[in-house]
């Protein structure tokens, strides 16, 4: 079935909520307004106000409510209108959700999904364009999931809802309208399992979420010059499918890491560290990283484009890794 990424997410939640009455959706504008990004379209009509709950603008409050409910056995899906606003709830997520299991010596589970859109979406400025995967992934006790396609979105969200741990589910704000083939019904993508989005032999690009599509475009460009790029998508940032990445690098002997967010303490830094430690003898060139440049996102379209990873930067990085281009 052809669905948009948005519809795939909606289907995942609806199917799971049909299956288990302990699951509910909570967040700003998720009910009567049908979702700020229409991800929950029709769900209020289907499940009623008890299970599709409009909250006041109090992220810290409702994230905490979700956490308490999860501790005593419900399975909340907490929507942040965007991940930018999760910062006022980050205490709840990091200090509580991620830690209750350990602090209680394993007595309490934390089956909760925090979800919403992340990343830049076009001239939204400094406060509405941010990537938080590296912040959340820095915290043991959380799992961080970032699907790039409608099929992965559905399969991973269903898996996330069934998982007994707190999940940071970051959707691509720019991907909501993206269409793709999605398996009907029971379609689960295991958390922690990556996917090869394009096979190739000359160079590996590791990328996730929206950037996978930019990587695929770059791969297409490079193919015209007979350079065969493999695009691998870990899909889950933490736990990370490092074996898939290592295997690809062992085949291509080159690694480019493409990340929408900043490089400093970024996910790419973690991946690069692991690749150099496990594939040192396989690498024919230094690992390349492509990231957003280190400034808060400006509003002007020329500047936003300037600091955002794009196809020419990827093409250049791949060529550097192949010693086809200097610097």
């Amino acid at each position: 079935m052809r669905l948009s990424y948005r519809e795939a997410l909606n289907q995942a939640m609806s199917e799971e909520m049909d299956r288990d009455a302990d699951i509910f959706l909570m967040g700003e504008e998720v009910g009567h307004y049908q979702g700020a990004y229409k991800v929950s379209q029709g769900m209020l009509q289907k499940f009623g106000e008890k299970r599709v709950i409009d909250t006041p603008i109090a992220e810290c409050g409702f994230a905490g409510v979700g956490i308490g409910a999860a501790m005593v056995g419900l399975r909340p899906i907490v929507e942040f209108m965007t991940w930018n606003f999760s910062l006022v709830a980050i205490d709840q997520i990091i200090n509580t959700a991620a830690k209750v299991r350990l602090m209680s010596g394993g007595q309490f589970k934390m089956p909760i999904v925090f979800r919403g859109p992340g990343g830049a979406a076009g001239q939204l400025g400094a406060q509405h364009s941010q990537c938080f995967e590296s912040m959340y992934a820095n915290c043991p006790g959380l799992k961080v999931v970032m699907p790039s396609t409608p099929a992965d979105a559905k399969g991973l969200l269903k898996a996330a809802i069934r998982d007994d741990d707190p999940i940071i589910f970051i959707e691509g704000e720019r991907l909501y309208g993206f269409q793709g083939e999605v398996p009907e019904g029971e379609h689960l993508v295991p958390i922690g399992k990556g996917d090869i989005k394009r096979e190739g032999t000359d160079c590996t690009i590791v990328s996730w979420s929206k950037m996978v599509h930019t990587a695929l475009e770059a791969a297409e460009e490079l193919a015209k010059e007979n350079i065969s790029v493999e695009v691998v998508d870990p899909r889950t940032i933490r736990p990370l499918d490092e074996e898939m990445i290592f295997e690809s690098v062992r085949k291509t002997n080159r690694c480019v890491i493409l990340e929408e967010g900043y490089s400093f303490s970024g996910i790419g830094a973690e991946i690069a560290a692991r690749v150099q430690s496990k594939c040192f003898d396989d690498l024919d060139a230094p690992i390349e990283r492509i990231n957003r440049f280190e400034v808060p996102m400006p509003y002007a379209p020329n500047l936003e484009a300037l600091i955002t990873p794009d196809v020419p930067r990827i093409v250049a990085a791949v060529k550097r890794a192949m010693y086809l281009e200097k610097n």
């Binding site: 905490g64 956490i67 308490g68």
Partner: peptide, 15 residues
């Protein structure tokens, strides 16, 4: 920080 969590526990009882 635990006040919302407690509200969530009560929410579950009501749910």
């Amino acid at each position: 920080g635990h006040v919302p969590l407690a509200a969530g526990v009560a929410f579950a009882s009501k749910y």
